[in-house]
Computed example of a mutant assay.
Amino acid sequence: MSMQQSYHALSRLFDYPRQREEVESCYDALATYLRRSGIESRARLFGEMLGNSTLSELQEDYVARFDFNPAAAPYLGHHLYGDNQKKGGYMIQVKQEYGRYGFEAPVDELPDHLAVVLAFLAHLARRGEDEVRREFIGKLVLPAINKLLGTSEQRDTSPWLTLVEAAELLCSADCREEATC
């Protein structure tokens, strides 16, 4: 499994769960990559929840975690800027990067949704745009993920949080390969 595949799998895990088999496959791919890379992660807690939940329970928990909890919303601009004009500038910058590197973001999701951002990182990895990817992570991804984790850790024990932690670990490990983040 490659860095690109791990970003893709993690991206899919932040989408609303529609098929249990896909969630299981993406979790297994991510867990395998983390283990093989020597990255210690609490994502196994998500795996345990996955093993003990039906698809409808996963969907219910996803909505409770991400849709009804503003502190845990997977929108990176929200965590960096709240609801002010600076968030708009962040969104424009993210969309410009997508366009510059030929990435077509889904039209049914905001560009700063963690699933979309991780899909873009997978796209950059597939294209071999390592320096660009690491710069994007350092400037636009890690600061927001760290804020999201900072606001969530004290109040949230959801296994979904371990996926946010895994995103931070994966991005940080990616940046350690080159000192650009």
Results as ranks from 00 to 15, higher is better:
149 L>V: 07
114 L>E: 02
12 R>Q: 14
84 N>W: 04
113 H>K: 02
81 Y>Q: 08
138 G>K: 13
142 L>P: 10
157 T>C: 01
19 Q>A: 08
132 V>M: 09
26 C>M: 04
120 F>T: 07
88 G>N: 08
56 S>P: 05
18 R>M: 14
121 L>C: 12
89 G>C: 04
28 D>R: 15
141 V>D: 00
80 L>E: 11
111 P>F: 09
82 G>S: 01
59 Q>M: 01
66 F>Q: 05
71 A>F: 02
177 E>Y: 12
45 L>K: 13
36 R>L: 15
151 T>Q: 11
169 L>N: 06
15 D>F: 12
153 E>L: 12
22 E>W: 01
10 L>G: 02
104 E>F: 04
179 A>I: 10
61 D>N: 15
148 L>C: 04
83 D>Q: 12
142 L>H: 09
169 L>D: 00
66 F>L: 06
97 E>K: 15
181 C>N: 12
31 A>F: 06
27 Y>K: 10
181 C>W: 09
143 P>A: 08
82 G>W: 02
20 R>S: 01
132 V>T: 14
119 A>M: 04
118 L>T: 13
116 V>F: 03
13 L>C: 04
150 G>T: 10
21 E>P: 07
81 Y>C: 06
164 V>A: 09
172 S>M: 12
131 E>S: 12
12 R>F: 08
55 L>K: 03
128 G>W: 03
159 P>M: 08
27 Y>L: 10
174 D>S: 15
175 C>K: 12
176 R>I: 08
15 D>A: 13
52 N>V: 01
111 P>T: 15
10 L>W: 05
53 S>D: 05
167 A>D: 01
25 S>W: 00
172 S>F: 09
178 E>N: 06
169 L>Q: 14
13 L>V: 08
25 S>M: 10
76 L>E: 02
16 Y>V: 07
96 Q>F: 06
173 A>G: 00
85 Q>H: 11
85 Q>E: 07
158 S>Y: 01
119 A>Y: 00
146 N>V: 09
176 R>T: 11
125 A>S: 14
47 G>E: 05
13 L>N: 07
52 N>I: 02
155 R>I: 06
33 Y>D: 00
148 L>G: 03
6 S>C: 15
55 L>H: 07
166 A>T: 13
154 Q>E: 12
118 L>I: 09
112 D>I: 13
37 S>T: 03
153 E>Q: 14
123 H>A: 02
125 A>D: 10
75 Y>D: 00
117 V>G: 02
12 R>I: 14
108 D>W: 02
87 K>W: 05
143 P>K: 12
44 R>L: 12
101 Y>F: 14
161 L>A: 10
92 I>C: 03
72 A>I: 05
145 I>K: 15
41 S>K: 08
86 K>M: 14
104 E>I: 06
15 D>P: 10
77 G>H: 10
69 N>H: 05
144 A>M: 06
67 D>T: 13
130 D>S: 11
12 R>E: 13
11 S>H: 01
130 D>A: 15
128 G>E: 01
82 G>E: 04
133 R>N: 04
170 L>H: 03
6 S>M: 04
44 R>V: 12
94 V>Q: 04
3 M>C: 08
14 F>E: 07
122 A>V: 11
22 E>V: 14
15 D>V: 15
10 L>P: 01
114 L>N: 03
134 R>G: 00
51 G>A: 14
